[in-house]
Computed example of a mutant assay.
Amino acid sequence: MIEMDEIDRGLLRALAQDAGASAGALGRKFGLSQPAAWRRIKRLREAGVFTRVKLDLDREALGFGVTVFLGIKLATKGRVSLEDFERAVSAIPEVQTVEHVLGLYDYRLRVVARDIPDFERVLRRRIMTLPGVGNVEANVLLSEERLPGPL
């Protein structure tokens, strides 16, 4: 674990809000020179505190108005390897996240679709045909009140 001071934490919060912020702008915000801010950001990245800069797309603006969380219980764990299921489900473009979880279901998926009929098509033709899929529970996202941010 890397030691961080308040400036490091502030840099992370600022980068979580705007990953494209320049080192010069961040330096001015935190009373650092551009090279000093850049060195701190580089040190945090090299320590693995953050691994990449991510473009956050507006799904609705791109025509994906429905987000559904699926809980999937594999029917036959012994006959289908988890790696086979993960590889197959990760190849579906509408599946945004694949999380192997402990609890009622084996996996939790975040799926985007243009609308409910489009989601039904993805569910029937792609997800339900995956190796080992047993029980599936769907929860449609109504609103998202808090977006992920820094710890």
Rank of each mutant, 00 (worst) to 15 (best):
E99P: 00
I92M: 04
Q17L: 14
R121L: 04
E46P: 00
T97N: 00
S143T: 15
R40D: 08
P150H: 12
R108Y: 14
L32P: 07
E94L: 00
L70V: 09
A138H: 04
A21P: 02
N135K: 15
A91W: 03
E60H: 15
A36Q: 13
A75H: 12
M4T: 10
R40M: 03
L62P: 00
F30R: 05
Q96D: 02
E137L: 13
D8C: 04
A36I: 00
L141N: 08
P93Y: 10
F30C: 03
A21T: 08
L104C: 01
R126I: 00
R146Q: 13
V80M: 00
G134I: 07
V68Y: 06
G24K: 10
L26V: 01
G27S: 10
F69C: 04
H100S: 13
I2F: 01
I127V: 11
I116W: 13
F69M: 12
V53N: 04
E46G: 02
E46T: 11
L141K: 13
V140D: 01
G27A: 09
V112L: 10
G78M: 06
E137I: 13
E99N: 06
D8H: 08
D118Q: 03
L123P: 07
L15F: 07
R114Y: 05
N139R: 14
Q96H: 02
L26S: 04
A37W: 02
A37K: 06
S81R: 14
